[in-house]
C-alpha cells in the first residue's frame, strides 16, 4: 500500500532532469562514474557525501558550468525535459537561463542591489519596460525574503549587505530569470546559523515553484530541506532515494557508515 502511494507521487511529479550513465573526466581523472539520477519537478533534491566525492562536480554538469574548465569532459546522457543538454545544438547560455545556480560563497556583483537582481532579466530580455522590470525585481526580492530588508536601499551596493543577505540576494538574482531548476552549491557553508535557517526556510518555499537541487555537507540540512537525497562516494552515486528512507534505513553499508559518522 505504501509503495503504491509512492509510485503515484512519482507519476504526478514530472521528471525535470534525467541523467543516465553520466561520466565526468578532468583530463585523465575519472571524477564521476555512471551516475543515474532523476531530478523531479517541485522537489528539493539533496546531494550529500564526503569532500571530493564529486557532488559539486556533478551539480555543475547539470547547467554546463563545467564548460568553463578546459580540461573537463562529460559523457553519458543528461536531459532536461527529454532534450540532451550536451547536444552540440544546445546553447549553454539558453540552458543556464533555465537552470539557474547559486554558489557556495555569496557572489553579488559590485553593483546595486537592484542591478544585481535585474541583471538576468536584462540580458535575457525578459521584460519590456522599466515598470515590468521593477515588478520582477520586487517579486524576486520578496520570494527571496529580502524585500523588507532592502526596499529602502535598492540602489545601495549589493556587496554592502551581510553574508546571509548577500546569499539571499544571489538567490533572488537566480530566480529572476524564472528558471525551471535551481542548483545550489553548498549555499549555506559561508553563513552563520541564523542566516542558514533563513536560507533553508527560503529553499522550502521555493519548492512550490521550482525544482531545487542542493549540494550540502550538512546531513541535518539535507534531512531538513530535501525530499530526495543522493549519496555520492568517490565519484559513484551510491544511493538515491527518499530522504526519509536514506536517513532512517539506508540500503548501502557505505551510506550507513557516512550517516553514522564513520566515513567522511
Amino acid at each position: 500500500m505504501k509503495d503504491l502511494v509512492m509510485e503515484t507521487r512519482v507519476d504526478v511529479q514530472t521528471v525535470k532532469i534525467e541523467a543516465r550513465k553520466a561520466q565526468v573526466f578532468y583530463g585523465t581523472n575519472h571524477a564521476i562514474k555512471d551516475v543515474d539520477v532523476d531530478i523531479l519537478d517541485k522537489t528539493v533534491t539533496a546531494f550529500i557525501g564526503p569532500s571530493g566525492c564529486g557532488k559539486s562536480t556533478f551539480l555543475r554538469c547539470l547547467n554546463r558550468m563545467n564548460d568553463t574548465i578546459a580540461s573537463c569532459r562529460v559523457e553519458g546522457k543528461i536531459t532536461l525535459e527529454g532534450e540532451d543538454i550536451y547536444d552540440p545544438r544546445v546553447d549553454p547560455v539558453q540552458l543556464r537561463a533555465k537552470i539557474g545556480m547559486v554558489f557556495q560563497k555569496p557572489n553579488p556583483f559590485p553593483k546595486s542591489i537592484y542591478d544585481n537582481v535585474a541583471y538576468g532579466p536584462k540580458i535575457h530580455g525578459l521584460t519590456r519596460n522599466k515598470a515590468e522590470l521593477d515588478q520582477v525585481v520586487e517579486s524576486c526580492l520578496r520570494k527571496a525574503a529580502l524585500w523588507n530588508e532592502v526596499k529602502d536601499r535598492l540602489h545601495a551596493p549589493g556587496t554592502g549587505l551581510s553574508g546571509g543577505q548577500q546569499q539571499r540576494l544571489c538567490i533572488a538574482r537566480a530566480i529572476a530569470t524564472s528558471p525551471e531548476v535551481l542548483l545550489m552549491d553548498e549555499p549555506c557553508s559561508a553563513l552563520d546559523p541564523i542566516a542558514t535557517a533563513q536560507v533553508e526556510e527560503l529553499i522550502d518555499e521555493l519548492r512550490s515553484q521550482f525544482s531545487v537541487v542542493i549540494v550540502t555537507h550538512s546531513m541535518q540540512q539535507a534531512a531538513r530541506v530535501s525530499q530526495k537525497t543522493a549519496f555520492f562516494h568517490l565519484g559513484n552515486l551510491v544511493e538515491f532515494g527518499e530522504t526519509s528512507q536514506i536517513f532512517t534505513n539506508p540500503r548501502d553499508p557505505r551510506t550507513e557508515s557516512y550517516i553514522t559518522g564513520r566515513i567522511g
Binding site: 547547467n63 568553463t68 545556480m101 547559486v102 560563497k105 541583471y119 538576468g120 537566480a174
Partner: peptide, 22 residues
C-alpha cells in the same frame, strides 16, 4: 574573483556580457 564570473555565467550570460557588465 572567478566567483563573479561564475555568478554571471550561471545566470546564462554570455562571456562577453560577463566581461562587459561584470
Amino acid at each position: 574573483p572567478q566567483s563573479l564570473r561564475d555568478g554571471s555565467l550561471g545566470l546564462g550570460a554570455t562571456s562577453s556580457e560577463t566581461v562587459r557588465q561584470v
